[in-house]
Amino acid sequence: MSSFNIFDIAGSGMSAQTVRLNTTASNLANADSVSTKPEDAYKARHPVFKSVQAALGAQSAGAKVQVAGITQSTAESQARYEPGNPLANADGYVYTSNVNTVEEMVDMISASRSYQNNVEVMNTSKDMMLATLKLGQ
């Protein structure tokens, strides 16, 4: 039934935003991780969203959202001179992650607002359907 599609759509939005929040949490947690080699340093991760149109002819007008994949940031890892660090290379350098914490914070706020939007949609639709069930009573 078409009214139940809204729950699928809003649900897909919520799970996509959850993935986004997960990557943000991972990026922020690893913001200060260091490593010996630049290629081993933590790279910021970001999900790629894609909209999926239901099969043509199906009774659905709306498109769900899905996570098409996770990309890793290609930004350069910074070298930091820390000869006392056990992970430092022969020259005394460690390579930091390329996470931009300000960007991650903004991303986090955006993701949580989008999540809330989807929750609101679901709540409103639920109220509407409950009201419809009471029609004629």
Binding site: S2, I9, A10, Q17, F49, K50, G62, A63, S110, A111
Partner: peptide, 20 residues
């Protein structure tokens, strides 16, 4: 209205989808 609701829900769910 129910149909339009579905479209608007899809718009909100895809608020962060590139090229949507």
């Amino acid at each position: 209205s129910a149909q339009r609701n579905e479209l608007l829900a899809a718009n909100l769910a895809n608020a962060d989808t590139p090229n949507y």
